[in-house]
Amino acid sequence: MKVVVVKPERCVGCLQCRFACSVAHSISGSPYAAPYEAVLSKPRIHIGLTKDKDAFPNKCRHCDPAPCEMACLPKAIFREPSSGMVLINPDRCINCGMCAMACPFGVVRYHVYSSNKTAAHKCDQCIARQKEGRVPACVEVCKVGALLFDDYNKVMDRATDEISSLVYLGIRSKEQEKGPYQSLTAYKHRLEELRRKQA
């Protein structure tokens, strides 16, 4: 089963994934029209920040077993059998907050849906786009490779190969030796250090 794999070390914090997520889940599906809809579509992916200001794209992991599903008394949260995705039926949701408390990743929010009902709200792995043979919107829009859509085992196989070469080269991480973004991260770390010192 394909999932969205997050490579946090590659995230530059552009927030494109949040934008694309909102558009993909809007009624119009258009970036020009979506901000004009009566109920604004809210993003289902969140960018967390470490104390060093490193960004982490955080979204529903579609756990199995899913703690949110187990905690949901009205059975609004369910596993869609064909795709294996954990989905929400907003009509059954009673806004009790149990799923949010149970979620180990903190990715559940409560928002108004286009039906005007407020309910639990989270990533559906773009199940509608997947049916059209398209990858999730957040993955498509990510230009730095921080979000991938792939089978976890395949990703890990690739990671194993990568790690093998790196071990032989004696380098801990490829990301550390290349790219202008690395120097920006280093700069941000220094800035944060300075801020802590001054405080």
Binding site: L15, A34, L40, K42, P43
Partner: peptide, 9 residues
């Protein structure tokens, strides 16, 4: 900077 057109950010 950027403004979130969906009102959350």
């Amino acid at each position: 900077c950027r403004i979130d057109p969906f009102g959350e950010g």
